[in-house]
Nucleic acid binder design. Structure first.
Lengths: 135, 135
DNA sequence: ACTGTATTTAAGTATTTGCTTAAATAATGA
DNA sequence: TCATTATTTAAGCAAATACTTAAATACAGT
């Protein structure tokens, strides 16, 4: 099914509104803008989707604060089962947000440099609260 | 079921690792840090969760760029059904990310000021790509 | 009051998510 | 080699998500 204003309205029953006030040029420009940045939207939304889960947000925050942590530590800190943590880690590893370094039996995970720039401002939203209490 | 290192290991079969190397102090501090910022994590993750959907990210991006848009416009631009758009809008309205102003039959939605600060840096991730093409 | 337009809401559904438990891998040390 | 520890993977399942279609609501103009 198609959506959006069409020249040939009779061709398909257009579900969209037919507001006269609609700015066709504006709408066309928006479409083009989205199309141009198609890839960016995919990438960004997938990262935000990962960070948009409270457990994963906490994991990312902790990794940023502590530098690196193992699934075992995270399980302790978050009070969750190791498999649950491991599956969250896998998602972030798969989308290249974090990387693990093995040290014996333990695997230490850390945030990939390239994503810190995007994530740091988000963490500040959290840490800002700390400062308020410290004053 | 409980997780995490315990003093009385015999009391419950502790699923957590029992690594000697674990830094108990570090872990305790992390726990406290999370507890202190409990509310922030909830709020932030719920916003990121909304932005972590490609359709909603695009809606937010468009609202920021254009100032305000109606469901009808968004339906056109994104090529999606009006109810689909409306339901995304509802979620964001419910969590106070956007607000609607009625003008006749049309309702124009815009991002709430208080959230722009958090969202703008994210949008830059997208717009940065534009500049590259303009040079 | 009636018609048409813009939007929302409701109900139904296929897919995804995030946990659980149990089993599989991988590395260490006796 | 065998037992222990750390982590991952697999299978199962309840809940959440994101769409669909159809119906309801709200407003405007005649």
């Amino acid at each position: 099914m198609r959506y959006g204003r069409t020249i040939n309205v009779t061709m398909d029953k257009n579900q969209s509104c037919i507001r006269v006030l609609a700015d066709e040029v504006q709408i066309q420009q928006c479409k083009e803008n989205l199309e141009e940045n198609k890839e960016s939207f995919g990438k960004l939304s997938s990262i935000l989707n990962l960070a948009g889960n409270e457990v994963r947000l906490k994991i990312l925050y902790l990794l940023e604060q502590e530098g690196q942590l193992c699934p075992c530590d995270l399980s302790d800190i978050l009070g969750m089962s190791i498999p649950a943590i491991s599956q969250h880690i896998r998602k972030m590893k798969d989308r290249n947000i974090i990387t693990g370094k093995r040290s014996g039996q333990t695997i230490f995970y850390a945030i990939n440099e390239e994503h810190l720039e995007l994530l740091k401002p988000l963490f500040q939203e959290i840490t800002v609260g700390d400062k308020k209490e410290m004053i």
